[in-house]
């Protein structure tokens, strides 16, 4: 029996279907019909997949050799931290301020490029966001929760 990230993914899927099915039980019958029609078989399928995952021998899975990874590869934690940084920057400070800032920060600190490249990337992002979306397409861009509260 093996338990790893693969199994955890299946458990998350199973949990999503099981909770959707349980929540649907509290709905009026007509509203609950489709969620139950999809949720119950979904739960069964994920439970079946979980059994397959748990019974899988560890050597059934060919993992990528860590030595094959390029030197600028990142850990999953690092990549998800960057995703969180993007979310915080863009939700907090909006696209016009947060966008160029976070792009420049990524290029400088994650890609380990020079400050010049990072500033160029930030400026290019600002130009694209302002030039294309605000000026050309006339779309109102989100100003960010923090900036909206301050301004």
């Amino acid at each position: 029996m093996t338990f790893n990230a693969r199994t955890a993914t299946t458990i998350v899927m199973l949990a999503l279907f099981a909770s959707a099915t349980l929540l649907a039980l509290g709905l009026p019958s007509k509203a609950a019909f489709m969620p139950l029609l999809v949720g119950i078989p979904g739960t069964i399928l994920c439970a079946w997949q979980l059994i397959i995952d748990l019974r899988r021998a560890p050597d059934d899975v060919v993992e990528v050799d860590a030595e094959d990874q390029p030197q600028d590869s990142r850990t999953e934690t690092e990549v998800f931290l960057w995703l969180a940084v993007f979310a915080i920057a863009l939700v907090g400070f909006g696209f016009v301020v947060g966008g160029p800032f976070v792009v420049a920060a990524y290029v400088r600190y994650s890609s380990r490029d020079t400050w010049g490249t990072a500033l160029f990337a930030g400026a290019a992002t600002l130009t694209a966001l302002y030039g294309v979306f605000i000026w050309l397409l006339e779309l109102p861009l989100f100003r960010g929760l923090v900036l909206e509260a301050l301004l």
Partner: peptide, 28 residues
């Protein structure tokens, strides 16, 4: 196929989020 169909059903479940068009009750 199990994974594929499950992901397809997850897509349907996500599409059901919102007000039910028949009863007006809130779903998820």
């Amino acid at each position: 196929l199990i994974k594929g169909v499950a992901v397809g059903f997850l897509g349907i479940l996500v599409s059901l989020i919102g007000l039910d068009p028949h009863t007006g009750s809130q779903r998820y």
